[in-house]
Write a protein that binds this DNA or RNA. Sequence first.
DNA 1: GACATATGATAAGCAGGCTTACGATTGGGA
DNA 2: TCCCAATCGTAAGCCTGCTTATCATATGTC
Lengths: 156, 156
Amino acid sequence: MKRPLRRELVFQLVETSRLLRTYVEQRARQHGTTRAQWGVMSRLRRQEGLNQASLAEQMDLQPISLARLLDRLQSQNLIERREDPADRRAYRLFLTPEGRALVDGLDAVRTEIADEILGEAEEAAIQSALGTLSTIREQIRTRSEDKAPASAGNAA
Amino acid sequence: MKRPLRRELVFQLVETSRLLRTYVEQRARQHGTTRAQWGVMSRLRRQEGLNQASLAEQMDLQPISLARLLDRLQSQNLIERREDPADRRAYRLFLTPEGRALVDGLDAVRTEIADEILGEAEEAAIQSALGTLSTIREQIRTRSEDKAPASAGNAA
DNA sequence: GACATATGATAAGCAGGCTTACGATTGGGA
DNA sequence: TCCCAATCGTAAGCCTGCTTATCATATGTC
């Protein structure tokens, strides 16, 4: 079963995504932050009080990768690590007012980017692409769990 | 004109792609190389004798980013930098026999990954996704050129 | 209660992107 | 001819990911 288009899509996805990530990175920088930190703040805005491990799992990040992001965010006074009263190992994460203001302001940028990048795409194509991405994501998550039996039961 | 799906697609694309890149990275590592180095060798296989600047432009990479990739590839004896007889500033790039063998062997891996990740996706969805990615890539290239007027005429 | 194991966070070290800045060479004009 | 801008490659320094390993704390079992 030869399906060269599938191979091509993997390749294109990896390459296009690097371009897109870099582009978003530049746009974020114009507003004094970075794509990764933006992502953390967005997630925190939706759900505060998480500990680092939970947030890392939600974001498909390694805890250590998140920890260093949080270091930078904290040093800019954009997030807060509060000690968990019930677990002395853990912190609970909160946005500061500054952090909240920043991420709120960035919503417009997100819309801008989407319009720039996808302004000409048709609604149906976007729907379809979302579905395909979702499939891919699911497959990768499955494969990764196979190899890294982190926690038997996963919060799917 | 509110189009929340577009925003969602940008987000999903950035996130899914990180997962995919990491996954491809792992698979590449199982064969003793990396995704980025794999990409360089693939490109060189198609077209040898390029100089670094041309290859970087083709790959949408900054010359310095490519230079360090090439350093690693060269130290593994997978590529060769030959002095350009006509321009003493430049090198011309070639795969070594080892490099060629490695990248040839990886073709199977590429197919494997594509089947794993997209095995369940329909042909039409893949076609559509490719088109959408292509649109995105074009848009980003345009935007980036606006800001970075590297070379007026670009090899589109 | 004590010990083994699991878990939260971090440290060290690497790869791969970037921006900015620089030396060396090329090549075109005055 | 000589000089200056453009180009090729690189260095330094940053951010974001990773893997692997470690420390402190929780937790479950005997």
